[in-house]
Amino acid sequence: MAKAILVDTSKCIACRGCQVACKQWHGRRAEPTRFQGSYENPLALSAQTWRRVGFIETAGGDGRLRWRFISDACKHCTDASCLAVCPTGALFRRTWGAVDLNQDICNGCRYCVAACPFGIVAFNEESGRVNKCVLCPDRVEAGLEPACVTTCPTDALTFGDRDQLLSQAKRRVAELQAKGEKGAQLYGERELSGLHQLFVLQERPQVYGLPEQPRFAVASVFPSSVTSVLASVVMGVTALVAFRGRGGKGEE
Protein backbone atom coordinates (compact mmCIF):
# COMPACT_ATOMS: atom_id res chain seq x y z
CA MET A 1 0.00 0.00 0.00
CA ALA A 2 1.53 3.28 -1.09
CA LYS A 3 2.07 5.71 1.76
CA ALA A 4 2.51 9.44 1.58
CA ILE A 5 2.76 12.66 3.52
CA LEU A 6 0.13 15.28 2.90
CA VAL A 7 1.32 18.85 3.39
CA ASP A 8 -1.69 21.08 3.91
CA THR A 9 -0.21 24.54 3.60
CA SER A 10 -3.47 26.12 4.70
CA LYS A 11 -2.98 24.66 8.16
CA CYS A 12 0.69 25.42 8.52
CA ILE A 13 1.60 28.01 11.12
CA ALA A 14 5.27 27.94 10.19
CA CYS A 15 6.34 26.84 13.63
CA ARG A 16 9.16 24.87 12.01
CA GLY A 17 8.79 22.03 14.44
CA CYS A 18 9.03 19.70 11.46
CA GLN A 19 12.28 21.27 10.36
CA VAL A 20 13.87 20.67 13.73
CA ALA A 21 12.28 17.27 14.38
CA CYS A 22 13.84 15.96 11.20
CA LYS A 23 17.22 17.24 12.27
CA GLN A 24 16.87 15.67 15.65
CA TRP A 25 15.75 12.27 14.45
CA HIS A 26 18.36 12.06 11.74
CA GLY A 27 21.18 13.66 13.70
CA ARG A 28 21.59 16.60 11.35
CA ARG A 29 23.65 19.57 12.45
CA ALA A 30 22.76 23.23 12.52
CA GLU A 31 24.28 25.28 9.74
CA PRO A 32 25.75 28.73 10.29
CA THR A 33 23.18 31.30 9.20
CA ARG A 34 22.54 35.02 9.26
CA PHE A 35 19.19 36.75 9.29
CA GLN A 36 18.67 37.93 5.73
CA GLY A 37 15.48 39.91 6.00
CA SER A 38 13.05 36.98 6.00
CA TYR A 39 12.17 34.50 8.72
CA GLU A 40 13.38 31.73 6.44
CA ASN A 41 16.58 29.99 7.45
CA PRO A 42 18.53 28.05 6.25
CA LEU A 43 17.86 29.42 2.81
CA ALA A 44 17.86 26.06 1.04
CA LEU A 45 17.65 22.35 1.66
CA SER A 46 21.01 20.81 2.22
CA ALA A 47 22.75 17.74 3.48
CA GLN A 48 22.01 18.94 7.01
CA THR A 49 18.53 20.25 6.34
CA TRP A 50 16.12 17.78 4.77
CA ARG A 51 12.95 19.63 5.51
CA ARG A 52 12.55 23.34 5.49
CA VAL A 53 9.75 25.80 5.89
CA GLY A 54 9.45 28.53 3.30
CA PHE A 55 7.91 31.92 4.14
CA ILE A 56 6.44 33.71 1.15
CA GLU A 57 4.99 37.20 1.24
CA THR A 58 2.66 37.66 -1.65
CA ALA A 59 -0.32 39.73 -2.68
CA GLY A 60 -3.29 37.63 -3.74
CA GLY A 61 -5.56 38.53 -6.65
CA ASP A 62 -7.41 40.94 -4.38
CA GLY A 63 -4.21 42.79 -3.55
CA ARG A 64 -4.42 41.73 0.08
CA LEU A 65 -1.18 40.70 1.69
CA ARG A 66 -0.69 37.01 2.21
CA TRP A 67 2.04 35.20 4.09
CA ARG A 68 2.21 31.68 2.76
CA PHE A 69 4.12 28.90 4.43
CA ILE A 70 5.27 25.64 2.97
CA SER A 71 6.99 22.77 4.66
CA ASP A 72 9.03 21.26 1.91
CA ALA A 73 11.08 18.09 1.54
CA CYS A 74 11.63 15.25 -0.92
CA LYS A 75 8.49 14.39 -2.90
CA HIS A 76 9.25 10.69 -3.25
CA CYS A 77 8.16 10.83 -6.87
CA THR A 78 6.90 7.78 -8.70
CA ASP A 79 8.96 8.94 -11.65
CA ALA A 80 11.88 9.74 -9.43
CA SER A 81 14.62 11.36 -11.45
CA CYS A 82 17.16 10.89 -8.70
CA LEU A 83 16.51 7.21 -8.50
CA ALA A 84 16.39 6.75 -12.26
CA VAL A 85 19.80 8.28 -12.81
CA CYS A 86 21.58 6.87 -9.77
CA PRO A 87 24.28 4.59 -11.21
CA THR A 88 25.02 2.69 -8.03
CA GLY A 89 21.64 1.75 -6.66
CA ALA A 90 22.24 3.84 -3.56
CA LEU A 91 18.87 5.41 -4.17
CA PHE A 92 16.18 2.78 -4.08
CA ARG A 93 12.45 2.45 -3.70
CA ARG A 94 10.71 1.07 -0.65
CA THR A 95 7.66 -1.02 -1.49
CA TRP A 96 5.41 1.56 0.11
CA GLY A 97 6.71 4.39 -2.03
CA ALA A 98 9.61 6.03 -0.25
CA VAL A 99 12.69 6.82 -2.26
CA ASP A 100 15.31 5.75 0.22
CA LEU A 101 19.03 6.24 0.17
CA ASN A 102 21.68 3.75 1.15
CA GLN A 103 24.63 5.81 2.24
CA ASP A 104 27.01 2.87 2.12
CA ILE A 105 26.70 2.50 -1.62
CA CYS A 106 26.52 6.12 -2.68
CA ASN A 107 29.74 7.11 -4.40
CA GLY A 108 29.13 10.82 -4.45
CA CYS A 109 28.69 11.22 -8.20
CA ARG A 110 26.03 13.92 -7.62
CA TYR A 111 24.04 12.91 -10.65
CA CYS A 112 20.90 12.73 -8.52
CA VAL A 113 21.65 16.22 -7.29
CA ALA A 114 21.43 17.59 -10.80
CA ALA A 115 18.54 15.37 -11.78
CA CYS A 116 15.96 16.08 -9.10
CA PRO A 117 13.45 18.59 -10.48
CA PHE A 118 12.86 20.05 -7.02
CA GLY A 119 16.42 20.62 -5.90
CA ILE A 120 16.06 18.20 -3.04
CA VAL A 121 19.15 16.03 -2.99
CA ALA A 122 22.22 17.76 -1.63
CA PHE A 123 25.87 16.83 -1.55
CA ASN A 124 27.51 16.43 1.82
CA GLU A 125 31.08 17.70 1.58
CA GLU A 126 32.09 15.90 4.72
CA SER A 127 30.95 12.41 3.89
CA GLY A 128 31.40 12.82 0.16
CA ARG A 129 27.91 11.41 -0.28
CA VAL A 130 24.52 12.91 -0.79
CA ASN A 131 21.64 13.37 1.65
CA LYS A 132 17.93 13.93 1.47
CA CYS A 133 14.67 13.18 3.22
CA VAL A 134 14.16 9.43 3.20
CA LEU A 135 10.60 9.42 4.55
CA CYS A 136 11.79 7.91 7.82
CA PRO A 137 11.66 4.20 6.89
CA ASP A 138 13.16 3.36 10.27
CA ARG A 139 10.08 4.83 11.90
CA VAL A 140 7.45 3.96 9.34
CA GLU A 141 8.40 0.31 9.20
CA ALA A 142 8.22 0.22 12.98
CA GLY A 143 4.66 1.51 12.83
CA LEU A 144 5.43 5.15 13.63
CA GLU A 145 4.86 8.26 11.60
CA PRO A 146 7.78 10.20 10.17
CA ALA A 147 9.40 12.46 12.77
CA CYS A 148 8.27 15.66 11.10
CA VAL A 149 4.66 14.50 10.94
CA THR A 150 4.61 13.44 14.57
CA THR A 151 5.81 16.87 15.58
CA CYS A 152 3.42 18.97 13.52
CA PRO A 153 1.03 20.55 16.02
CA THR A 154 -1.68 21.53 13.56
CA ASP A 155 -1.88 18.43 11.37
CA ALA A 156 -0.57 20.47 8.49
CA LEU A 157 1.48 17.32 7.94
CA THR A 158 -0.33 14.00 7.94
CA PHE A 159 0.97 10.59 7.00
CA GLY A 160 -0.99 7.63 5.74
CA ASP A 161 -2.21 5.66 2.77
CA ARG A 162 -1.76 7.73 -0.31
CA ASP A 163 -5.24 7.03 -1.63
CA GLN A 164 -6.84 8.16 1.56
CA LEU A 165 -4.68 11.25 1.73
CA LEU A 166 -5.67 12.06 -1.84
CA SER A 167 -9.34 12.09 -1.02
CA GLN A 168 -8.63 14.01 2.19
CA ALA A 169 -6.71 16.56 0.15
CA LYS A 170 -9.47 16.86 -2.41
CA ARG A 171 -12.03 17.46 0.29
CA ARG A 172 -9.82 20.14 1.75
CA VAL A 173 -9.32 21.84 -1.60
CA ALA A 174 -13.07 21.87 -2.13
CA GLU A 175 -13.54 23.31 1.36
CA LEU A 176 -11.02 26.06 0.73
CA GLN A 177 -12.51 26.83 -2.66
CA ALA A 178 -15.93 27.08 -1.08
CA LYS A 179 -14.49 29.54 1.40
CA GLY A 180 -13.41 31.70 -1.50
CA GLU A 181 -9.83 30.58 -1.81
CA LYS A 182 -9.73 30.43 -5.56
CA GLY A 183 -6.08 29.47 -5.64
CA ALA A 184 -6.57 26.31 -3.60
CA GLN A 185 -5.29 23.29 -5.46
CA LEU A 186 -3.83 19.86 -5.08
CA TYR A 187 -0.27 19.22 -6.14
CA GLY A 188 1.24 15.80 -6.58
CA GLU A 189 -1.61 13.61 -7.68
CA ARG A 190 -0.45 13.25 -11.27
CA GLU A 191 2.85 15.10 -11.33
CA LEU A 192 5.65 12.65 -12.15
CA SER A 193 3.08 9.85 -12.16
CA GLY A 194 2.24 10.72 -8.58
CA LEU A 195 4.21 12.09 -5.67
CA HIS A 196 4.37 10.50 -2.25
CA GLN A 197 4.40 13.92 -0.72
CA LEU A 198 1.17 15.64 -1.65
CA PHE A 199 0.42 19.30 -1.21
CA VAL A 200 -2.71 21.32 -0.66
CA LEU A 201 -1.63 24.71 -1.93
CA GLN A 202 -3.39 28.05 -1.65
CA GLU A 203 -1.67 29.59 -4.64
CA ARG A 204 -0.14 28.49 -7.93
CA PRO A 205 2.74 26.06 -7.38
CA GLN A 206 5.21 28.63 -8.69
CA VAL A 207 4.46 30.93 -5.78
CA TYR A 208 5.92 28.25 -3.54
CA GLY A 209 8.84 27.60 -5.85
CA LEU A 210 7.36 24.36 -7.11
CA PRO A 211 7.63 23.69 -10.86
CA GLU A 212 4.24 23.81 -12.56
CA GLN A 213 5.25 20.78 -14.60
CA PRO A 214 8.14 18.93 -13.03
CA ARG A 215 10.19 16.97 -15.56
CA PHE A 216 11.25 13.37 -15.23
CA ALA A 217 14.91 13.91 -15.98
CA VAL A 218 15.46 10.70 -17.93
CA ALA A 219 12.56 11.45 -20.25
CA SER A 220 15.15 13.06 -22.52
CA VAL A 221 17.32 9.97 -22.80
CA PHE A 222 15.42 8.58 -25.74
CA PRO A 223 15.30 11.73 -27.90
CA SER A 224 18.89 12.53 -26.99
CA SER A 225 19.88 9.04 -28.05
CA VAL A 226 18.10 9.37 -31.37
CA THR A 227 19.80 12.66 -32.17
CA SER A 228 23.12 11.20 -31.06
CA VAL A 229 22.71 8.20 -33.30
CA LEU A 230 21.85 10.47 -36.20
CA ALA A 231 24.90 12.58 -35.53
CA SER A 232 27.01 9.45 -35.29
CA VAL A 233 25.80 8.33 -38.67
CA VAL A 234 26.59 11.72 -40.15
CA MET A 235 30.07 11.63 -38.65
CA GLY A 236 30.58 8.09 -39.83
CA VAL A 237 29.67 9.07 -43.35
CA THR A 238 31.87 12.13 -43.10
CA ALA A 239 34.78 9.94 -42.10
CA LEU A 240 34.10 7.68 -45.05
CA VAL A 241 34.01 10.60 -47.38
CA ALA A 242 37.29 11.79 -45.92
CA PHE A 243 38.98 8.42 -45.94
CA ARG A 244 37.83 7.23 -49.31
CA GLY A 245 38.08 10.55 -51.11
CA ARG A 246 41.00 11.78 -53.19
CA GLY A 247 43.10 12.96 -50.32
CA GLY A 248 42.81 9.53 -48.83
CA LYS A 249 45.66 8.42 -50.96
CA GLY A 250 48.13 10.46 -49.08
CA GLU A 251 50.04 13.60 -49.67
CA GLU A 252 49.31 15.33 -52.91
Partner: peptide
Protein backbone atom coordinates in the same frame (compact mmCIF):
# COMPACT_ATOMS: atom_id res chain seq x y z
CA UNK B 1 20.17 16.19 -20.83
CA UNK B 2 18.84 13.79 -18.25
CA UNK B 3 19.03 16.35 -15.45
CA UNK B 4 16.95 19.27 -14.34
CA UNK B 5 19.62 21.91 -14.61
CA UNK B 6 19.37 25.05 -16.72
CA UNK B 7 20.67 24.64 -20.30
CA UNK B 8 21.11 20.88 -19.92
CA UNK B 9 17.78 19.68 -18.64
CA UNK B 10 15.80 17.94 -21.38
CA UNK B 11 18.09 19.15 -24.13
CA UNK B 12 18.56 16.59 -26.89
CA UNK B 13 21.33 18.34 -28.80
CA UNK B 14 24.29 18.13 -26.47
CA UNK B 15 24.93 14.53 -27.50
CA UNK B 16 25.21 15.38 -31.20
Amino acid sequence: GATNRPVWGGNAWIGP
